[in-house]
């Protein structure tokens, strides 16, 4: 087991290194430069002075070498456009994305498993169709569109929730205020993530319900609900767990757009701002951090997977 984890960690490091190579060279292909230097009113002289300050007069390969060298020592460089260490920016933004992501993930999982179970129990009944309608809608409506509609409805018309941001000024410690800000973005994100969980739960439950031990239980005359919860549910958790790994990746992707809609200061918005402003060190940092989280979550999911289902052996 230890050697398995070790091997996965090494693999993860290699993956992250490849991510850094791909991201670094791709983003340097983009025309333009850091927006602080390449801006509309900047004269050639001012621009060159700034690019030189950032060390952008050196060849790309040299710059990558330097970046990698300091990155392995834990120094991700300084943002060109914000003048702050990249590590600090990431430290400020990651918790926000994790809060949003976790809230959305929990909501999506709980609701997803619930709806998936309802659908499986009522297979092909009207409840099944209702659930499938909800999930298919969740997969079919652009998240940002849902966000805008939610803002108009809940913020502008009903005035229940704030339209944007993470916390009101002067209320940094106010949990209710934070939850109010969290409600819409997390809800919208959860709605777009839920379909995966519902589908996997439903089909896993149906698959398990055909398994021998469930048939036996049913043969003994137990009620379908009891059979489902006593026997099928635990086994069905395995594939649901597996899907969580995938959902985490989707979560990061989804948060990029949702964070922009709701002005949520997370990693996704940081990445957009950095890409638009050609803030090379920040793009790299944000992408790597997102990759790291995904790698770690996947590893954890695989380990949990093994714990829940002893049949799975990692050589």
């Amino acid at each position: 087991m230890t050697s398995y984890i070790l091997r996965r960690l090494v693999l993860g490091a290699v993956v992250l290194w490849l991510v850094s190579v791909v991201t670094f060279f791709l983003i340097h292909l983009a025309p333009g430069g850091p927006s602080s230097a390449v801006s509309f009113e900047r004269t050639a002289e001012e621009r060159e002075a700034l690019l030189k300050q950032f060390g952008l007069d050196e060849p790309v390969v040299v710059r990558y070498g330097k970046w990698l060298l300091s990155a392995v020592q834990g120094d991700l460089g300084v943002s060109y456009n914000q003048g702050l260490p990249v590590a600090l920016l990431l430290k400020q933004r990651l918790p926000n994305t994790l809060t949003l992501g976790l809230a959305a993930l929990v909501t999506a999982t709980v609701l997803g498993i619930l709806l998936g179970t309802v659908a499986a129990v009522n297979r092909n009944g009207w409840l099944d169709h209702v659930v499938s309608t909800i999930t298919t809608l969740g997969m079919s409506i652009p998240g940002f569109w849902l966000g805008i509609v939610a803002i108009i409805l809940f913020a502008v018309e009903l005035r229940w929730l704030p339209a944007s941001g993470i916390v009101s000024s002067g209320k940094a410690g106010d949990l209710v205020d934070r939850l109010k800000h969290l409600a819409m973005p997390a809800g919208v994100l959860a709605f777009t993530l839920m379909p995966n969980v519902v589908r996997v739960t439903r089909s896993a439950l149906l698959e398990v319900s055909r398994a021998d031990f469930v048939r036996t239980a049913r043969g003994k005359g137990l009620a379908p609900g009891t059979v489902l919860f006593k026997h099928a549910f635990k086994n069905a958790l395995v594939p649901v767990l597996a899907v969580l790994g995938l959902v985490t990746t989707a979560l990061f992707s989804g948060s990029v757009v949702i964070e922009s809609v709701f002005g949520w200061p997370g990693l996704g918005r940081l990445a957009i701002e950095a890409a638009n402003g050609r803030d090379y060190p920040v793009i790299l940092g944000a992408t790597l951090l997102a990759g790291l989280v995904v790698v770690v979550v996947n590893l954890l999911v695989d380990l949990l997977y093994a714990a829940v289902d002893p049949r799975i052996r990692h050589e």
Binding site: L11, G12, V14, V15, L16, L18, V19, V22, T23, L26, I27, H28, L29, A30, P31, T249, A250, L251, F252, S253, G254, V256, V257, G268, A271, I272, A275, N276, R278, I283, A286, T287, A290, G291, V294, V295, N298
Partner: peptide, 24 residues
């Protein structure tokens, strides 16, 4: 499959963002 792992590890949208920025 390792390459697949790399691509699965980069959240799609981050990758797309970088590529579209790079190539227009």
């Amino acid at each position: 499959m390792r390459l697949v792992d790399v691509f699965m590890a980069i959240p799609n949208f981050f990758l797309i963002l970088v590529v579209v920025t790079a190539f227009g």
